[in-house]
């Protein structure tokens, strides 16, 4: 059980009440919690930004930020993998969990709208990559960044609602994602020039940038 998991108890009980009384919400959450829906939407928004600006200079500026966000997603996933290698925290629905109230509530929720995944719960990989993407894009395009933050928030809430994560998993994942994106965009990528420029030139040569 991850540190501070007890924070989730009150929220978990509230979610359980909603789940039992508003079944239509379960259908919406079932879509939002999916491993594919919000990640694909976020990536397609990034793809639209990559192509969609009429001004070539502004388009290049956005493409650099999309590259930064993509690198941030990769690096933050690596950070999560390293944490997972050293510490395996079970999911909230895991029968080994000492707190049976959380365990049973989470089991019911994940059984209703998701599935019982077996990988470690802490930190949330979904929160990490979605917040890394949102921060990377926000630095280059405020409105698109806010939209992706909103989608990231929805995905994280759905994961919590579905009993897939503890609250602290999501907060930690979001923190890792935001921090990684800031470091990549502000520190790492500017220092790796001219590599990003070479990559963009190669993409331009192939008509994809």
């Amino acid at each position: 059980m991850p540190p501070l998991a007890g924070w989730t108890l009150t929220i978990t009980e509230a979610v359980e009440v909603v789940e039992q009384n508003v079944p239509a919400l379960n259908d919406v959450m079932s879509l939002l919690v999916s491993d594919f829906f919000i990640p694909v939407v976020i990536c397609l928004i990034m793809l639209g930004l990559w192509v969609g600006h009429p001004d070539p200079a502004r388009r290049e500026y956005l493409q650099r930020h999309i590259m930064n966000a993509s690198v941030a997603i990769g690096i933050s996933t690596l950070v999560v993998t390293i944490i997972n290698v050293h510490h395996f925290w079970p999911r909230p629905f895991d029968p080994a969990l000492p707190d049976t109230i959380i365990q049973q509530s989470a089991y019911l929720a994940s059984d209703t709208i998701f599935y019982h995944t077996h990988d470690p719960t802490f930190p949330s990989n979904g929160a990490t990559i979605s917040f890394a993407a949102a921060t990377g894009i926000w630095l280059g395009h405020r409105k698109a960044g806010m939209l992706i933050y909103f989608l990231a928030f929805l995905w994280c809430f759905a994961r919590f609602y579905g009993g897939v994560h503890f609250f602290v998993d999501i907060i930690t994942g979001a923190f890792i994602g935001v921090l990684t994106a800031l470091l990549i965009s502000k520190v790492f990528m500017p220092r790796t020039e001219p590599c990003p420029t070479w990559a963009l030139n190669a993409c331009r040569f192939l008509y994809i940038a």
Binding site: F36, V40, C43, L44, L47, G48, L49, W50, V51, G52, H53, P54, R59
Partner: peptide, 18 residues
Amino acid sequence: LVFIGAVGVYQIASIPAG
């Protein structure tokens, strides 16, 4: 899913980009 979605996004995004 991604292939068909991306074809649609290219069609939409190529309008403002001209």
